[in-house]
Design a binder for these strands. Sequence first.
DNA 1: GATGAATGAGGATTCATTCAT
DNA 2: TATGAATGAATCCTCATTCAT
Lengths: 209, 209, 209, 209
Amino acid sequence: MPTDTFFNLSKEKKNRVLKAAINQFANNGYSKASVTQIVHDANIAKGSFYQYFIDKKKLYKYIVNFAINKKEEYINDIDNGKSNDIYDFLIQINIVMIKFAEDNIKLAKIINDLPNMENTDIYQELELNHKNFGLNLFIPRLKRAVHNKEIRSDINIHYTAHLLYNSSIFITNYFLEEKECNSLENAIPVIENIIDLIISGIKKNGGEN
Amino acid sequence: MPTDTFFNLSKEKKNRVLKAAINQFANNGYSKASVTQIVHDANIAKGSFYQYFIDKKKLYKYIVNFAINKKEEYINDIDNGKSNDIYDFLIQINIVMIKFAEDNIKLAKIINDLPNMENTDIYQELELNHKNFGLNLFIPRLKRAVHNKEIRSDINIHYTAHLLYNSSIFITNYFLEEKECNSLENAIPVIENIIDLIISGIKKNGGEN
Amino acid sequence: MPTDTFFNLSKEKKNRVLKAAINQFANNGYSKASVTQIVHDANIAKGSFYQYFIDKKKLYKYIVNFAINKKEEYINDIDNGKSNDIYDFLIQINIVMIKFAEDNIKLAKIINDLPNMENTDIYQELELNHKNFGLNLFIPRLKRAVHNKEIRSDINIHYTAHLLYNSSIFITNYFLEEKECNSLENAIPVIENIIDLIISGIKKNGGEN
Amino acid sequence: MPTDTFFNLSKEKKNRVLKAAINQFANNGYSKASVTQIVHDANIAKGSFYQYFIDKKKLYKYIVNFAINKKEEYINDIDNGKSNDIYDFLIQINIVMIKFAEDNIKLAKIINDLPNMENTDIYQELELNHKNFGLNLFIPRLKRAVHNKEIRSDINIHYTAHLLYNSSIFITNYFLEEKECNSLENAIPVIENIIDLIISGIKKNGGEN
DNA sequence: GATGAATGAGGATTCATTCAT
DNA sequence: TATGAATGAATCCTCATTCAT
């Protein structure tokens, strides 16, 4: 999406510009993000900006795609692990999402803001469907788990996928907000706890009384 | 938050203004909402607006509080019902939230948009903690349910409350988006399905084989 | 084309704005005319300008129509005179066009610049066809003159109308440029001279030798 | 007007630049012509452009002179023919002007656009007086024709020259616009028709009845 | 209390020109 | 000499807010 001119820039300058842009979009969202501010933060001329990117929209789309690609890289890491049981998988996916958010807080914010753009043309133009990406992460795993008799066969896979996807977002946000300064290690028990809730339910088991 | 002048207005005029404002904020979010448009839709003079509200921000805060109060009214209705078991309670609370959203789509949208404002000064100034309100809805119920041995005593109540609160938001959104035209009745099986997931977990039970 | 706000302005202010705008467009043409300059010359705020006119284009269209209407008023004056013979008519029309240009040099310049806009969307939007207006001025008169045996029946009316229309533009420009400071009276012999050329041709008549 | 650097360029490169520039000016006029676009079309670097020409204005002046010189070449061709009578001369000159316009549409457009620049500094700087060139084309011929008793001795030569010059422009434009696709042959009857009007006038001749 | 005109800082974007390599 | 990135003043336009009547 950027012009050749942008790609020909020194790595240092490219990073300055990207950093400034990511900051703007993360802190202000698309429509309130200011090109003037980006240009100021990146210490480049106004005119230069428009030699790097056709317009603000193109830059935004580039950054969004950049963020999503990065996130998917994280996810693919575990996907390749082919972890066997659904419990492990759920733990892994949540860990990885927190890892991504920790490593890339600003990018995570930009992705989190996407649902707010759903009714805009710009969202259509993005064409990616990150939401479906999220769901598609869970659906095949759930099917496999049903097949392997790991989980009940009477659940609605669609709803469950939504619930799991939603929970992963919740877990990430929860960790970022309330535990912000702590290391990932502190998150693992929380994740396990919540996944356990989902796996086993909150109901008191007959046998337990 | 509005001035006395606003409260002295005829009910009809007050409603015109509120309706116009709610529409603006629901459709455009805070920062893109246009005072000019509100003024036009409400058919009042620009100057009058600033005699009713100090500024756009004050109006927004007023509307947000208005929306939250309305939502809490719905919730209090069931709370008073003192429904006994946790399962029933969860069903009830989700039904009521959908009801609220159905009856007040615009207000629901405004409330849904709140998380996106979390990093702004305006959010701090709201001071309300709708989120805590949400959590406080579940925490005492969960405690009671543990005490009544309805649910496992080894769950973390805090996390569980979060999960339930989060799920209720998800259920409402899911219903609004994907089932928009259907009646509330159609939602009930979905709600039951999801609540069942949470209650019983997704794990295949020993006895089921 | 302007907003109600503009029409509600004091006559003095309206004139200030119109004068500044006419000056800009006359001296710089549409695309180089500067809103900032208009606003400065008229001594109003930038924001006010956009409360008077939707945008620069709308203002331009308004001014062009204003200019054309004024010109047509001048022409209608003679048209109503129902001057009989074609010679008188040609004299009259040229006098009137010079009068218009003298009284409204800036408006005349704006009209003269119109052909340069012929390939732009804005010209299409004007919808007026000033050129056809010019031709239609001559065609019926020529037809009548042929019928009255004032002029040769073997001329091509279409070409002749073009030639006459074109000549009238030439005469006006000629007068404005080369005689700028002189009064209209000085123009009349020139007009008569040129019209005589067109009426009688430049060829030496048989009888004259 | 270009720098030595430009003249030292390979013919092929010079032509690329000139072609791109002519296109820009013909299609957009001076002020809307884009240096960036010229540079792109000519496939040269931005910096090179400014090594060939001091600035956009200098290039424009060079192109205008280039166009005018070309046009004069066409005219000189017939001048050398020493065609005798004024009627033939007028026919010839109009044919030649259409020929020029046909062969060099872009250059003709640039020349046609000149009157619109009359109030700019750039026009003054051109210094050429193409208009006088046009007039000087006709004045000596008219004098000769008077002397040869081909035309009336009581006409004002100056006005007549203007009228003829103006008509030639009109004829060319008329042909370019309305007959664009046709060959020059189709233009000749039109030219004859109009020249006949000018020669003989539109008045019904006494003797003709 | 109602009105609507006035304000101006701020928004994104363009483009001829300069400059370092 | 060729290159293409850098520059910044200028462009049109928006909008919450103020002010005079």
